[in-house]
Structure formats: C-alpha cells, structure tokens
Computed example of a mutant assay.
Amino acid sequence: MIGRASPATLAAALLLAVPVLVAVAGPLAAPLITPPDGAPYTLGSGHLLGTDGTGRDVLGLLLRGGPSALGVACAAVALAYLAGGTLGLAAATTRHRWIDELAMRPVELILPIPSLLIISVVGVGWRGSPLAVALAVAAINAPAVARLVRAAALDAASGPVAEAMRLQGESRARVLFGYVGRSVLPVAAADAGTRVPLAVFTVAAANFLGLGLDPASPDWGVTIAAGREALLIQPWAVCAPAAMLVMFTVGLNLLADRLLAGGARERPREAKAARR
C-alpha cells in the first residue's frame, strides 16, 4: 500500500529505483544524450561527467553498463534459487533418508570451495561471457540456497497439513511447491534481499579483477577497474558507477527489511482477526 508506506520505505524504494531505472532505460537514452568520444580524462568540453582513459564519455558508459552489472547478478541468483531451491525442497520432502543424504552431501562438499576460485576458473576458460559469469555466481550461491531452503522447509514438510495432502492423494509437485514451497517464501525473500547485493558485488569484483566481462565493456565493475588508477584526475569514472552499485545494494537491503518487517507485523493481526 503506497499511501501508507513509511518515509524509510519510500527512501529505500527511491534508492533502489535510481540504478534500476538507469539499467533499464539507460541503453535507450545513451545514444541520444551522449556526445562522441573525446580526449582521455577530460572534464567538461561537452561531456557532463568527463571521459575515461580511452576518451569514452563516462555518462554514456554509466547509462550502458547497468544491464550487465545488475542483470547478470539477478539472473545468477534466480538460477541459484531454481537449482538450489528445488534441491532443498526435494530433500526436505523426501521420505527416504538416503535420498536426502545423496542430495545434500555433495552440497556440503561444494560449500567450502572459495568463490574466487570458481570465478577464476570460469574467467580463464570463458572470458568475456556474461552467461558464464552468471553460471559461476549461481554455482557459488546454489549450495547455500539449498541448505537454507531445506532447513526452512523441514517443519512444513513433516507437518500435519503436508501429511493430510499426501493422504488425500495430492501430487508430489503440489505438496512440494504448492504448500511447502509457499511456506519458505518469507525466508527465501529475506535471504534474497542480501544474496542479490552480494551477487552484484561478486560480479563487479570479478569484472574488476579482469575475470569477468571484456575490459572494453561499459559494465559498472569494469569501468571502476579501468578508472581506479586515475581516480584523482577523473573521479567521476569511478564514483558514478560505484554510486549506482551502492544505491542498488543499500536500497534493496533496506526495502527487503522494511517489507519483511511489515509482513511480520501483519501476520499476528490476521491470525487474531481469524480467531474472532
């Protein structure tokens, strides 16, 4: 309910909306409002935010770099929940302990592997591929998602409602996703509120280290890496994309916290009203 949203919720939504709007509409606007390339590391001369080390307009890079910076991370988290969430739900709802063990033991073996090692392998083998970066970040997050979803789903999977659905002949898919899956949505939403920003920074760090996208890409992480050596000469080349990443992560975290806190307050009221 927008009219009843608190100032803190509106501020969080605004913080999140700015980088999302830049990522969505920026590539369309960039050709219309950015001038041709100029001299390296200039401020002014028709370039609102100046130019980078190769003479490219910083504003144009900022407008074009959002889809890879945010899209790859969001796609990676979605893949992680698709794979890890399904595995966690299946392990929680199975009646055969050996299936649970078979599903979760490999997950525990993968968890200790450093994320930078996975990114490095992918970066060396498939340098410059957004799909490869998304798959690597998804592989990093999927084991933790599987463990979280399994733990959150155990009570619902072994509870009376799930048992009654089985006795009534409901399909396994309906029990798995229709009831047990819905029961873990609040936990998954809270986790996603922190996992997406972490994925954004993982993708940005990979690009910063040269393990992700092509160095000529306008991606925000790539432009931060390219401009860091001339930070004092041309600060906008680093500060502008860094501000987009910070606003996205802080806004998403704050908005998720506010929405989940509001939902937690509403549930007792609904339960009280139902008892009446």
Score class of each variant (00 low, 15 high):
residue 67 P to R: 08
residue 131 L to P: 01
residue 72 V to Y: 04
residue 18 V to K: 01
residue 221 G to E: 04
residue 7 P to K: 08
residue 199 A to M: 03
residue 223 T to D: 09
residue 6 S to K: 05
residue 210 G to M: 13
residue 48 L to R: 04
residue 84 G to R: 08
residue 236 W to A: 14
residue 272 K to C: 01
residue 88 G to E: 06
residue 252 L to K: 00
residue 1 M to Q: 05
residue 54 T to Y: 11
residue 11 A to I: 14
residue 24 V to R: 10
residue 140 I to E: 07
residue 48 L to F: 13
residue 69 A to Y: 14
residue 134 A to F: 03
residue 231 L to D: 10
residue 98 W to M: 12
residue 3 G to A: 12
residue 20 V to Q: 05
residue 3 G to E: 07
residue 30 A to V: 10
residue 41 Y to S: 09
residue 196 V to P: 01
residue 13 A to T: 04
residue 149 V to P: 09
residue 19 P to L: 13
residue 22 V to W: 04
residue 218 P to I: 04
residue 34 T to A: 14
residue 41 Y to F: 14
residue 211 L to N: 10
residue 145 V to L: 05
residue 29 A to E: 06
residue 267 R to E: 13
residue 95 R to I: 04
residue 54 T to G: 10
residue 11 A to C: 13
residue 53 G to C: 03
residue 276 R to P: 03
residue 222 V to W: 02
residue 75 A to K: 00
residue 241 P to F: 10
residue 204 A to W: 02
residue 160 P to N: 14
residue 3 G to Y: 07
residue 7 P to F: 12
residue 27 P to T: 09
residue 241 P to Y: 10
residue 230 A to G: 08
residue 158 S to T: 12
residue 26 G to D: 15
residue 115 S to W: 05
residue 27 P to A: 12
residue 237 A to E: 03
residue 84 G to C: 03
residue 145 V to Q: 03
residue 55 G to Q: 11
residue 136 A to I: 01
residue 126 W to I: 06
residue 99 I to S: 11
residue 30 A to C: 10
residue 162 A to T: 14
residue 235 P to E: 09
residue 161 V to W: 04
residue 15 L to V: 10
residue 219 D to I: 00
residue 169 G to E: 08
residue 118 I to P: 12
residue 237 A to Q: 12
residue 189 A to W: 03
residue 205 A to Y: 04
residue 59 L to F: 06
residue 165 M to Y: 07
residue 138 A to N: 06
residue 123 G to N: 10
residue 77 V to D: 11
residue 55 G to P: 05
residue 91 A to S: 15
residue 154 L to M: 15
residue 95 R to A: 15
residue 194 T to K: 01
residue 207 N to L: 06
residue 233 I to V: 15
residue 83 A to N: 00
residue 82 L to K: 01
residue 197 P to E: 06
residue 231 L to V: 14
residue 115 S to C: 08
residue 151 A to G: 15
residue 245 L to M: 15
residue 245 L to R: 06
residue 227 G to L: 08
residue 183 S to H: 11
residue 263 G to V: 11
residue 274 A to T: 05
residue 94 T to V: 09
residue 119 I to E: 07
residue 69 A to G: 09
residue 182 R to I: 02
residue 247 M to F: 11
residue 38 G to P: 13
residue 85 G to K: 00
residue 88 G to P: 01
residue 197 P to C: 10
residue 247 M to T: 00
residue 258 R to S: 13
residue 109 L to D: 06
residue 100 D to M: 03
residue 112 P to F: 15
residue 58 V to Q: 07
residue 147 R to D: 11
residue 156 A to F: 04
residue 172 R to L: 08
residue 208 F to M: 07
residue 14 L to D: 03
residue 104 M to N: 03
residue 120 S to G: 13
residue 137 V to C: 05
residue 98 W to P: 00
residue 14 L to H: 00
residue 145 V to P: 05
residue 260 L to I: 13
residue 47 H to F: 09
residue 252 L to P: 05
residue 182 R to W: 05
residue 202 T to D: 08
residue 195 R to F: 03
residue 196 V to T: 10
residue 206 A to S: 15
residue 178 G to V: 08
residue 64 R to C: 05
residue 218 P to R: 02
residue 251 G to V: 03
residue 5 A to S: 11
residue 83 A to H: 02
residue 240 A to H: 11
residue 217 S to H: 10
residue 24 V to E: 12
residue 77 V to S: 13
residue 170 E to G: 01
residue 120 S to H: 08
residue 163 E to H: 06
residue 188 A to K: 00
